Amino acid sequence: MLSKEKIARINELAKRGKTTGLTTKEAEEQKKLRAEYVQTFRASFKQQLHSVKVVDEKGQDVTPQKLKDAKKGNGGIQH
């Protein structure tokens, strides 16, 4: 998870970008922070997917093979 300070800075730069505009240095900082945020989000989402088990109405495990393989570390879901 990204720190509260970094998220606050992302929001500050976004607000300033909409109102007064950003300097080149600020735009580069915003780009790096956003990339870090997206990377963190994807890793978190991937971890959440790996904890999913799909069960049908009969109680049988119908988790897609691709997800099962990814849980085992045999490829599967990529980002």
Rank of each mutant, 00 (worst) to 15 (best):
L2P: 00
L2H: 02
L2Y: 01
S3Y: 03
S3I: 00
K4A: 09
K6C: 01
K6G: 00
K6R: 04
K6I: 04
K6A: 08
I7S: 04
I7Y: 07
I7F: 06
A8Y: 09
A8T: 05
A8R: 04
R9C: 02
R9V: 02
I10H: 01
I10P: 00
I10D: 13
N11Y: 05
N11F: 07
E12V: 00
L13E: 04
L13K: 06
A14K: 09
K15P: 00
G17Q: 07
G17R: 00
K18P: 00
K18A: 13
K18R: 10
T19D: 14
T20D: 14
G21W: 02
G21P: 01
G21V: 06
T23P: 02
T23G: 08
T23S: 12
T24K: 09
T24D: 15
T24Y: 05
K25I: 10
K25Y: 12
K25P: 02
E26P: 05
E26R: 02
E26F: 05
E26S: 04
A27Q: 13
A27L: 11
A27C: 03
A27I: 07
E28I: 09
E28P: 00
E29W: 03
Q30M: 15
K31C: 03
K31W: 03
K32D: 11
L33H: 02
L33P: 01
L33Y: 02
L33W: 01
R34L: 14
A35C: 06
E36L: 08
E36R: 02
E36W: 12
Y37M: 09
Y37R: 04
V38H: 08
V38Y: 13
Q39L: 14
Q39E: 15
Q39A: 14
T40D: 13
T40Q: 11
T40V: 11
T40A: 15
F41R: 12
R42D: 14
A43T: 04
S44T: 06
F45G: 00
F45A: 15
K46L: 15
Q47A: 10
Q47L: 09
Q48T: 08
Q48C: 10
Q48K: 04
L49D: 11
L49Y: 07
L49W: 14
H50D: 15
H50M: 15
H50N: 15
S51F: 07
S51Q: 13
V52Y: 13
K53M: 15
K53H: 12
V54Y: 10
V54Q: 12
V54I: 06
V55F: 01
D56F: 06
D56V: 03
D56R: 00
D56T: 05
D56N: 13
E57C: 12
G59F: 07
G59A: 11
Q60L: 14
D61A: 08
V62W: 10
V62A: 07
V62E: 11
T63R: 05
T63Q: 08
T63C: 10
T63M: 07
P64Y: 07
P64L: 06
Q65N: 10
K66T: 05
K66N: 11
L67W: 01
K68Y: 04
K68C: 02
D69T: 02
D69I: 03
D69M: 06
D69S: 08
A70H: 05
K71D: 11
K72N: 03
K72W: 06
K72Q: 09
G73V: 08
G73R: 03
G73C: 02
N74Q: 09
G75D: 11
G76N: 05
H79Y: 14
H79D: 15
H79I: 14
